[in-house]
Simulated scan of single mutants.
Amino acid sequence: MAVILLLIVSAWRAEHYILLSFGVMAAGILFLLARFENRKMEVGELVLIAVIAAIASVGRIPFASIPGAQPTTFVIIVTGLVFGAEAGFMVGGVAALASNMVLGQGPWTPWQMAAWGLIGLVSGLLRNRSFMQNKWGRAVYGIIWGFLFGFIMNLWGLFSLGGGGNTLTMDAVVAYFGASLLFDTFHSIANVVFLLVFGDQFIKTLSRFKRKYGLLE
């Protein structure tokens, strides 16, 4: 009902399109959460997802002083690769929500949940592709998502700037995206480093848990 109300209000007051963005974002997140909730899962599977999400969350904190650099995206990519799209989405969404309890919650949190959740979702959907079975292919994939994550978060920033009825100019859009380029570059570099250095071992460890205990088959 809250999502429907947001959509109605945003349609009525067209200048407040940030409400529409929140409505669409919430609708997508709630749909995938409901789908996950309706699955029959063992306790061990829920614990495993919670532990991986905790690792992804805590990983942001030591790197908070480095612009855009953190292992969170790496953990989410590997989770989707090993356990599938739904597990990847859940880890991504929970990691954003949990880590922001330390780093700071705000209206950007749903966008981070959606962006990281989307990374896990797409990683799971593409996990059987040949390039995902190769560490250099995964590295290129990490570069792409480093910039796509920044693009999604830039959309939130632009929506927030224009959400009060302010008109966004092309100069403002270019300046905003240009200002985030350094952060996105560091994010992509961090993804490559973590995927190349720790990717194979992390995938091997998670795959062993999956086979040995029959989790998230």
Rank of each mutant, 00 (worst) to 15 (best):
89 F>P: 02
57 S>L: 06
202 F>H: 02
157 G>R: 10
10 S>Y: 13
203 I>C: 01
62 P>K: 05
161 L>F: 13
30 L>N: 04
62 P>V: 02
109 T>W: 10
148 L>H: 08
87 A>H: 03
38 N>D: 12
88 G>W: 06
146 G>L: 11
3 V>H: 11
157 G>S: 13
106 G>P: 05
11 A>D: 02
111 W>R: 05
174 V>G: 08
169 T>R: 01
203 I>M: 07
95 A>E: 09
91 V>Q: 06
43 V>G: 15
190 A>W: 10
139 A>I: 09
172 A>D: 06
68 G>L: 05
191 N>A: 05
120 G>K: 05
85 A>S: 15
189 I>F: 14
126 L>W: 12
211 R>K: 15
170 M>P: 09
60 R>V: 02
70 Q>S: 15
146 G>Q: 11
86 E>D: 12
72 T>Q: 11
149 F>D: 00
42 E>M: 10
38 N>G: 12
91 V>A: 02
6 L>T: 05
23 G>K: 07
136 W>Y: 15
216 L>H: 02
63 F>M: 14
143 I>K: 09
4 I>T: 03
87 A>N: 00
199 G>M: 11
7 L>A: 06
125 L>Y: 14
123 S>I: 01
95 A>C: 10
102 V>R: 01
127 R>W: 04
127 R>I: 01
8 I>C: 05
66 I>H: 06
163 G>C: 11
2 A>Q: 11
202 F>C: 07
135 K>C: 01
97 L>R: 01
60 R>Y: 09
146 G>C: 11
188 S>P: 12
36 F>M: 00
202 F>L: 13
106 G>V: 07
146 G>W: 09
48 L>A: 11
64 A>T: 10
197 V>E: 01
18 I>T: 07
75 V>C: 07
161 L>Y: 13
206 L>F: 14
46 L>E: 04
46 L>W: 03
132 M>R: 09
104 G>W: 15
9 V>K: 10
69 A>P: 03
58 V>D: 02
155 L>Q: 09
20 L>T: 14
112 Q>A: 13
